[in-house]
Amino acid sequence: MHRFANPARFLRLAALVLPWVSVLSALLFAAGLYLALFVSPEDYQQGDTVRIMYIHVPAAWMAMFAYSSMAVAAACALVWRHPLAEVYSKAAAPLGAGFTLLCLVTGSLWGEPMWGTWWVWDARLTSVLILFFLYLGYMALVDAFDDPQRGHRAGSILLLVGAINVPIIKFSVDWWNTLHQPASVLRMDGPSIHGDMLWPLLILALAFKTYFAATVILRMRAELAERKIQTLRLTQAGGV
């Protein structure tokens, strides 16, 4: 469990991985955007608005992935006191919030022309809005205490309580009548998207994921530097 716990080892590993994920992300974005905007066909029903899907769906997946991984990290922090777990959650939160906002707004921009409304309070849309507030609440809570350790403890508990929302988002469209349609890719009987539309979607999903990996590494490095600064300031204040 603690094999990757040592921040120094993490920093070495991160330095090794970062250039590769960055290049990979750029390549995936280039390929994915080309396929999404130039190659993929119009949908038989939705015409060109289907191209919003190539942004909306990867953003939604990443919003859920970032939160789930933060909840797992929160469990590691609370149970095993893993020193990097809290650093990860704090670094990932603004990214997750960004993906959720992107998902909500592109959903609105897609809903208006196709459904005929910007927003409805159905189970799917509402639970994703709650996810956005969970991100904001976590970020506010972590910084709300004078003692950073207590802030992180409270934040971890919020992340775990809010984790119940993740399966609700995923299955809301199956459990209840919603305006939002059921899943098209992650479903029992295989994807219901034609291959010409599925490929750009999967490539852009990977592009989002590698972007997240690269950016979260940068943010974790910044947070570790910040912690070192705090330590040095304390030693300095303590006198030589």
Binding site: P41, D43, S184
Partner: peptide, 18 residues
């Protein structure tokens, strides 16, 4: 007083649908 369209989870090019 309001009509909304609900689309299903299938996406395909026009030729395939035809």
């Amino acid at each position: 007083s309001e009509v909304l369209a609900k689309h299903d989870e299938k996406y395909m090019p026009k030729e395939v649908a035809d």
